[in-house]
Write a protein that binds this DNA or RNA. Structure first.
Lengths: 312, 312
DNA sequence: ATAACTTACGGTAGACGTAAGCATC
DNA sequence: GATGCTTACGTCTACCGTAAGTTAT
């Protein structure tokens, strides 16, 4: 068994069971990948992929178990390389930030601006995705730093530290009838077509749950991936929306109004999330502290030590 | 980076930083191991081992982090092979049981006898060691099945299911003065030289804690690794001892007597422990159910599902 | 006919083993 | 001088890429 074979396997899965795309991604030839996978299956004595009409189409039952172990195993080993690279450079040479679109768009830029001055040579990659994507990435790439704007269910592999809370507001087109009500209720708001996030975004569920808790049934007219799209749609009077306060800028969004009934929706809790196995360096700690002064190195080290308990 | 290199690395650590012994263990030549490790260190750009007078003597600070990830990563990948082997054979071809000496000696034989009839072709390896060894093995070899006779601190990687409780008894040489007391206290018992387990055995601490709780200070005259040695010593009147009731056999141990004051010591809780990542097959479930009828397949599957929660 | 995986085959890198070299006790 | 790690070097395996083959849409 060879590491390369396992990487090929992972690449094939990551590329939707396409050997050709996997080969491209791995900068190698397609037959090589094909053959190595066959060899591996032969050596293990079990089919990993379901072959459908001479094409890979999925994982066998056993393949799923194998891929599970393979993913986490390779993640560990890959981190060794990432870690080695970071210590070689003394200070990290790149940061991988995974976060929600809202954070990437409305809070990170300020942080990145300051950070870039502190560490002009560090490349920062920002990815955004839904909570599931973020957690997935934190699991498979230990070096990533996650910023989640949803309440992630406690995860034994991750260290999750809430550090901020953003109020949510209802935005409406300028001069909207709702503005005339002194303190509109959730039921009042539910009367109007609602524009909200797409399924993969964590905030969607939080918002819908709030309506549901009081028995209100909003009519969702559109699900968008980010607040910018939502705002654009609200401007065009397609409906109203609930967004984090930080996504609203009174100057730029002059075509929108905010309802005063602020606290109808629970705030969005922003947390830092990192893989427990991650070893942070000075650069990372500085970045994190820029997110929130509360997240000091000392505190993070304490929190990290906490739950572990029984490590040898 | 090559899988083989990583295996060499692990072998060197496992063999007390001896390259030669690692090479032997890996059935290869010493120079090969030496060179591959150098190559790996070069590729990673960091020293993993502390070299002391042309000899490896420990891990560097970075080496520790690397080895940590490497151990768990390789464990995952090795399990793939183990798993593949087990599905190839339809029923498992071997079981690895790790347990305390007491269990291995006094409860397992009966179980193994029945199991051998059910699965005559399955080879069963029984290892014994202290709680730390057992947990270590369960962490690095997922295929292992652990039977712990101590209360293991909750471990996120392991599924621990208590299934039995053994009373502890005080054994004394036949006709010992203590037998004349109607119900001796812990203080009375502490008057006599005590033979107990060695440090690595979990029961030692449980027993000493019991004395300490009432302020008694037994004089430990000997620490042995297993109950058989302890019994032999008690027979020769070196002292008295506290052992699980199952370790005492009235017929065979005719030179010993048991104190009637039974419940002075807390019982020894016996638990099944398996790695959460382990996939159990019919053979394993049958083995486990032989340990205790309560440990049905259904129950184990339920318990396994429980704490996970947030897996993708 | 095209797209995708598989088989066939030759070249080459790199892992392994032997043998010699060095350092420490 | 014995032990144990390192360097040097030749061999040989096996991985990879090219090219041709197969299969299904």
């Amino acid at each position: 068994v060879n590491l390369q074979q396992l990487r090929y396997l992972r690449a094939v899965v990551a590329n939707g069971f396409s050997v050709s795309r996997a080969a491209q991604a791995m900068h190698t030839s397609q037959p090589g990948v094909s053959q190595q996978i066959r060899l591996l299956e032969e050596e293990l004595g079990t089919e990993i992929f379901v072959r459908d009409k001479n094409r890979l189409s999925g994982l066998t039952r056993h393949g799923q178990v194998i891929m599970d172990r393979l993913q986490s195993g390779l993640a560990e080993l890959d981190y060794i390389k990432s870690y080695a690279k970071s210590i070689r450079a003394e200070t990290a040479s790149e940061l991988l930030i995974v976060t929600s679109h809202t954070q990437a768009r409305y809070t990170l830029p300020r942080v990145l601006e300051v950070f870039a001055k502190l560490y002009p040579k560090v490349r920062v990659d920002v990815r955004h995705g839904g909570p599931a994507d973020i957690v997935d990435t934190l699991r498979s790439r230990f070096e990533a730093i996650g910023i989640l704007s949803s309440n992630v269910t406690a995860d034994k592999d991750l260290l999750v530290l809430p550090y901020a809370s953003h109020r949510r507001v209802v935005i409406v087109p300028r001069g909207h009838p709702l503005l005339r009500q002194s303190s509109p209720s959730l039921h009042d708001i539910a009367q109007w077509p609602l524009i909200t996030y797409e399924h993969s975004v964590g905030a969607r569920q939080a918002i819908l749950d709030t309506f549901e808790a009081v028995g209100a049934e909003p009519h969702i007219i559109l699900g968008a991936i980010d607040a910018d799209v939502i705002k654009a749609c609200v401007e065009r009077d397609l409906g109203i929306a609930v967004v984090p306060e930080i996504a609203f800028d009174a100057e730029r969004d002059s075509n929108l109004d905010v309802l005063v009934a602020q606290d109808l929706f629970p705030p969005s809790i922003v947390s830092l999330a990192i893989n427990r196995k991650r070893v942070l360096g000075a650069c990372e700690y500085d970045f994190i502290q820029l997110l929130s002064g509360d997240l000091t190195r000392k505190r993070i080290e304490e929190e990290a030590r906490e739950i572990q308990g029984s490590e040898r």
